[in-house]
Write a protein that binds this DNA or RNA. Structure first.
Lengths: 213, 213
DNA sequence: TATTAATGACTGACTGGTCAGTTAGTAAGG
DNA sequence: CCTTACTAACTGACCAGTCAGTCATTAATA
């Protein structure tokens, strides 16, 4: 009755990159790029450090992979959360913001955003990816919607980018608050609740008023 | 006529700490904590690396000094920008936001905020300083003002912290946009103009409506 | 079906460069 | 000429990246 010897390791060529990226996401978001140790990433991924280099050329390449892997699959979800149906703009805003909040709460987008902001000077091309793929596809789209809504008289006149800031800024504040202050004993933030209340505020603030109609 | 020999260096015991902190502020905001090199900070401050250690115990101590030196003297300015006179809340908001924007545009507070956000996991006590001395003294104060204004019927009912987010969030978005995206070719942001338009939006959004009075 | 050969995924000890922090010595300044 | 602000060469720890060797797995052969 020889005991079945557990192999020291298994071949898992397909699963390794995902394991490594998942571990790297944890470490990078916990510690930031510089303070994240490859030995620790390897340990959490259940591989040796050498294995990292079978799948990624360098620490920087791994960092890029993490950001891209988190961003790219979720850009569409974010984009759809902004697009929605063809209802009037105020109505649309009322569902858009909570949906956005729910997505951001469920995914590690907040942590990655914090990383990208923090490392933007050292990784300008990542800031560019974020800018082009996330920002322009959410804020940019919002700007187009606002321009159209202004033309239809659903939204008051004004610089549409600043209007987009008025809409999305509080979401960013909530996201970064959770990342920065909640871990050190700051207040909890219910992003979805904040989104709902803020939506009402901003709908009122952006609507053309009776008196002006 | 012997040429006056320029001394290789001068004793400037009083001026050194300020020089060093100024150079460190530049490097830390350009590169972040980890990627900033003490040799480079010393070079920009016009001293040798050893001199840094005559005035600061460690790189971390220098980092703390930078954050404190930039933040603490300006907390009062920020606080006053929120306090203002005892005019009704909407009026007050109309001057508060552009004043806040002007202060933040003039000082390197945005860059420091970005640093604190990025390094909050590695320097929780700095996040705490920021939270206690900056946030609670601006957002916290705003919350109190909002509660009072709600009681007076100047502002509609609602969670005052979320209302504060509605007010300040777009400012943060503008600040971080300038730090993150403008350097890589993203659009310019006129913070004061944004503050003015956003103030009108949010005043309207937070006011009690005719119909509800 | 059992045995052997070939493959390549994976390991972990090692290295070279980097950089925070130290210190022996120098010169400014009173 | 003494005190001390300051310099610059130095050190040692740390860590990203390497590579010679190991072994799980698969394919070929008997």
């Amino acid at each position: 009755m020889a005991p079945v010897p557990e192999p020291r390791w298994r071949r898992r060529k397909e699963a390794r990159p995902a394991d490594i990226v998942a571990a790297a996401l944890e470490l990078f978001t916990e510690k930031g790029f510089a303070a994240a140790r490859l030995d620790e990433i390897a340990r959490r991924a259940g591989v040796s450090k050498g294995t990292l280099y079978l799948y990624f050329d360098s620490k920087e390449a791994l960092f890029r992979a993490v950001v891209r892997d988190v961003v790219v699959p979720n850009v569409e979800a974010l984009r759809e959360s902004v697009l929605g149906s063809a209802t009037p703009f105020p109505e649309r805003l009322r569902e858009l913001l909570p949906r956005f909040a729910a997505i951001v709460t469920a995914l590690p987008i907040g942590a990655v955003a914090k990383m990208v902001i923090g490392e933007s000077r050292n990784f300008p091309e990542l800031a560019k990816v974020w800018h082009d793929d996330v920002i322009l596809k959410s804020i940019g789209l919002l700007v187009e919607l606002l321009e159209a809504a202004q033309a239809r008289g659903e939204v008051r006149a004004g610089n549409p980018r600043i209007q987009a800031f008025s809409i999305m800024g509080p979401m960013l504040l909530g996201i970064l608050w959770r990342e920065t202050f909640t871990p050190i004993g700051g207040a909890e933030v219910d992003l979805v609740a904040a989104a709902r209340q803020h939506a009402e505020t901003v709908i009122d603030g952006l609507s053309l008023k009776e008196s002006a109609r």
